[in-house]
Amino acid sequence: MSVHDTLLNRLKRGCETMAYPKGPAPALPDRHGGALKVEAAKCDASCSACVTVCPTEAIARPAGKPVALDLGRCIFCAECVTVCPTKAITQSNDHRMAVRQREDLVLGDTGKEQVRLAQALDEKLRRLFGRSLKLRQVSAAGCNACEADTNVLGTIGWDLGRFGIQFVASPRHADGLLITGPVSKNMELALKKTYIALPEPRIVIALGACAIAGGPFIGHPQHHNGASGLVPVDLFIPGCPPHPLTILDGLLRLLDRLGESDARR
């Protein structure tokens, strides 16, 4: 592989990193569906078809109140969308789902048809991590799909490094913890020790349905149904696994690096 044809090939291909967030976001696969939208008005009180069909009991019907869909527990299997007679629950094809508070993920009340997107960090943390955020990833049970999609962010197409965001080897060098998986009992000690090893100020990101509420394994006695019980979580990114675009959007929203292009709410 001589030097010559590496350089030649490189010049021919040019830069393959996407323009986003300066340019338009790459399209989600058409059958992906993106975030769910719940219009409580359309939902008639008597039917509870979606509640029975959801594999992770993400949909609940509190008495007297319209349907409540917890996007944190949802694994985006879209069973409820197909089975709902009145199309109260629809797919919005919107990749933006990251939130700062856990309760923002519960949709259904008036005004909460869609996810309230995450605000940026407060002034002090943003000044500190705005242009240099080093994350330490901890995989605590789960199925390795979220890790794969976080790895994809490092490839030349997404190129996370251009935002100054980098995954580092030692927690001593890290500013934040990115947790995937429902935190099995066997990984509880390791997660706590990693969190302690991080120097303050530090942030925690729960990535994927497992890390938020246990994902497809919700309720199993072998794990803690997500990281929020063990460490204070600053950012929730739902999905099973969340599309790389959703993860990147969450990270940039946290650092207020999205620019004016599509900052909504």
Binding site: L189, I196, A197, E200
Partner: peptide, 14 residues
């Protein structure tokens, strides 16, 4: 900036 004493990083084992 404050300084804190903590166990050496041992990859999360015992």
């Amino acid at each position: 900036a404050r300084t804190r004493i903590a166990p050496t990083w041992d990859c999360g084992q015992r």
